[in-house]
Amino acid sequence: MSIDAQTASMLNADDIRDIKAEMAHYPDKAAAAVEALKIVQRRQGWVSDAALTAVASLLDVSTAQLEAVATFYNLIYRQPVGETVIHYCSSVTCWMLGADDLRERLCRHLNARPGQISPDGRYTLLPIACLGACDQAPALMVGERLVTGVGAETAVTEILGEQS
């Protein structure tokens, strides 16, 4: 496979290696689309137009085809996000047990509304569907870390793992 200049400039050798390894798991390269976008996102934080174009050429699909997939899923960010994405559960049990209140406390602390990047560039807060931790509601994910049982008494700094 020839990798054009644009691909090379958007993806580093590790990304390309990881994406190719992922493609090898399936009879059809396109099946690696979501994982490939996640690989890009892991290093760059989000999927820019240029990165999407580069991944599309690696997967041998058109940019529109990849965009169709990228815009379908929740965890692919097509807009810039902060260094860490906080996903707070907005589904029923967490909502019942204080998710709205948790959201407001986080927004105040981060000084950003959901979807925005906090002014210090460190966080973006997003809602997410049920995290499967309803027995320890309210729950949220800070990056890849699941944090549960964060009632009104849990300090935001503790949630974010900022106090030390």
Partner: peptide
């Protein structure tokens, strides 16, 4: 066995949508 992690959509749990998702398409 290959572990395929999705990118978050409830509909991916519907078995035929899951198959589309696994193929790298819209679910």
């Amino acid at each position: 066995i290959h572990l395929h992690a999705g990118a978050g959509r409830y509909i991916c749990g519907e078995e035929t949508a899951l198959i589309n998702a696994l193929e790298g398409k819209r679910a």
